[in-house]
Computed example of a mutant assay.
Amino acid sequence: MATSKIVSFINMKGGVGKTTLTIGIADYLAKHLNKKILVIDIDPQFNATQTLLDIYSKEDYFDDILPEERTINKLFKPQTEFKRDSEIPSKDEVITTLNENLDLLCGDLNLVLVNKTSDYRQVKKLRRFVRENKLREIYDYILIDCPPTLTVYTDAALLSSDFYLIPNRIDRYSIIGISSLTTAIDNLIHEEDHDIQCLGLVYTMLDNELTQKQTAIKEEFEGQLDDYTYIFDATTTVVRDLQVGKRGSLPTNYQKSLHDISNLSEEFIDQIQKRLDFEK
């Protein structure tokens, strides 16, 4: 019986390759390492959803999935009747099967409305969904693609997770986002008494060689990190074909990106196992 670990992929700065990293690792683990994976797309832009459906599903998001409310928004819909507690949908109501090893909880633009609610119980709904549907017993890993903003559903993702992984580009704007993220997570840990660990930081979208300026920014940034922040040895590099998207937006469809994702996925598993071994 699997006891999955849940990992949020998050940075408070957009354009850092977060979604590409999430779906790349998910696809590699499912396809090449035979792991059972669930991707949860909690980013209102739902780019992970569009990419995975385009590659693996015959269903149309707007014609088939959205009308049936098979998206994450079903978890967060406000109550329409007076009940003791809101109902949590079953996994079969909302999870889309992509292939034998890869499932998807589709994203939804309507999530932008969730953040306007003052009902803090919304924050705990994703965790309840995982628990009540016993998803940890079904999947080896559950990967959550988070938005680059501090919202109700960002908190929901983090509150459901065992770890969070930070994709980061080497530029000053991306690095500033990590400071905001750290503050937000520290507050969540304090308020909810939630045990979540930083799995590490992954440098993304690197050129083959760093410029002198990028090297200086990297060194300055790493000097500000605490001694416990793990920096992945594996990175992702800029792949022009992936940016053009001739074979879609899934990085494992491109040889150079597949090499990057392969190394990252192996290190990803290794780091989780080391954390688990340390806790024993």
Rank of each mutant, 00 (worst) to 15 (best):
19 T>Q: 05
59 E>Y: 15
37 I>A: 05
36 K>S: 07
29 L>G: 02
44 P>S: 06
47 N>S: 12
42 I>N: 05
15 G>S: 04
20 T>S: 09
56 Y>V: 09
61 Y>E: 04
59 E>Q: 10
46 F>M: 13
19 T>G: 01
26 A>V: 08
17 G>R: 12
50 Q>L: 15
58 K>P: 01
61 Y>L: 09
49 T>S: 05
27 D>H: 13
48 A>M: 08
25 I>P: 00
61 Y>R: 05
60 D>Y: 11
26 A>L: 13
30 A>V: 12
35 K>P: 01
52 L>F: 09
37 I>E: 07
14 G>W: 12
18 K>G: 05
26 A>G: 10
36 K>M: 04
31 K>H: 13
17 G>Y: 08
15 G>Q: 15
13 K>H: 04
61 Y>K: 14
19 T>C: 10
18 K>M: 03
36 K>V: 08
44 P>A: 06
17 G>E: 07
21 L>G: 00
23 I>C: 00
31 K>C: 08
40 I>Y: 02
48 A>L: 07
50 Q>M: 13
27 D>P: 04
30 A>C: 06
40 I>D: 01
28 Y>H: 09
57 S>R: 11
51 T>F: 08
63 D>Y: 04
38 L>Q: 02
25 I>T: 03
14 G>Y: 10
32 H>W: 15
37 I>V: 12
14 G>C: 10
58 K>G: 02
29 L>M: 14
27 D>V: 03
42 I>L: 10
19 T>S: 07
45 Q>H: 13
37 I>W: 13
27 D>S: 15
54 D>G: 15
59 E>S: 11
15 G>A: 13
28 Y>K: 05
51 T>D: 03
22 T>G: 00
39 V>S: 06
59 E>V: 11
63 D>A: 06
48 A>N: 10
61 Y>G: 04
18 K>W: 10
41 D>P: 00
20 T>P: 00
27 D>C: 14
47 N>D: 09
33 L>Q: 14
42 I>H: 01
41 D>G: 02
26 A>P: 03
43 D>P: 00
19 T>L: 12
24 G>I: 13
32 H>F: 15
